[in-house]
């Protein structure tokens, strides 16, 4: 170990020396005359190529960094989209519409891509009807969502359902539009 370190230090020193030597020599000479290869000194063209190589490496590093950042943003966006997605239901109904299925397929894709995460599916109802039955209906809705996700390939153990019945409305109003927004399943991560 110690040996390899001292070897490395020696190498760095040699390369530095070579670099300084080439710089020192470069000034009085013209670019057209290549250096003798045997002396180990770089020609001007070689030096230029080396600079080019270094620049490319730096560029690649920046690009990789940018790509990583973009990937992170994309992952974050996908997660946000996953958490913002909601599935809506008809009155006194826990069946999934075509639109709901499409959203749930995307949800399943995210869950499969993030296999370390456990999701909580919340079932909600509008405030028509009565509290107890709505608790059960909310449970049914969350269960419908879970069943779909399981069929789409997500492990059942990664999906927990909680019903809130009509207790946590998204919109505290009493009209058709508000009721439609409140009959929903929501997602959060544990």
């Amino acid at each position: 170990m110690k040996k390899s370190i001292s070897l490395g230090v020696l190498l760095i020193m040699m390369v530095s020396l070579m670099f300084f030597a080439s710089c020192a020599k470069k000034a009085p000479e013209t670019d057209e005359y290549p250096m003798d290869i045997r002396t180990g000194e770089m020609t001007a063209a070689e030096a230029e190529a080396e600079r080019e190589r270094q620049r490319r490496i730096a560029e690649e590093e920046v690009e990789a960094y940018r790509a990583r950042q973009a990937q992170e943003l994309q992952t974050e966006a996908a997660k946000t989209q996953f958490l913002d997605s909601k599935v809506y239901f008809a009155f006194d109904d826990s069946s999934l519409s075509a639109e709901a299925r499409e959203i749930l397929l995307a949800q399943a894709r995210w869950l499969k891509a993030n296999s370390d995460r456990t999701v909580i599916v919340e079932g909600h109802c509008d405030n028509r009807g009565t509290e107890e039955y709505n608790l059960a209906l909310g449970s049914r809705r969350a269960q419908s969502v879970k069943d779909f996700l399981v069929n789409a390939g997500v492990e059942p153990s990664r999906i927990v359902t909680i019903s809130y019945g009509e207790e946590r409305p998204a919109v505290r109003e009493n009209n058709e539009a508000a009721w439609a927004k409140n009959r929903r399943a929501e997602f959060r991560l544990r």
Partner: peptide, 13 residues
């Protein structure tokens, strides 16, 4: 107050 039924999912009514 004591927890009486805390099964997975609903424990209501």
């Amino acid at each position: 107050e004591r927890l009486f039924a805390g099964y997975e999912g609903l424990n209501i009514t």
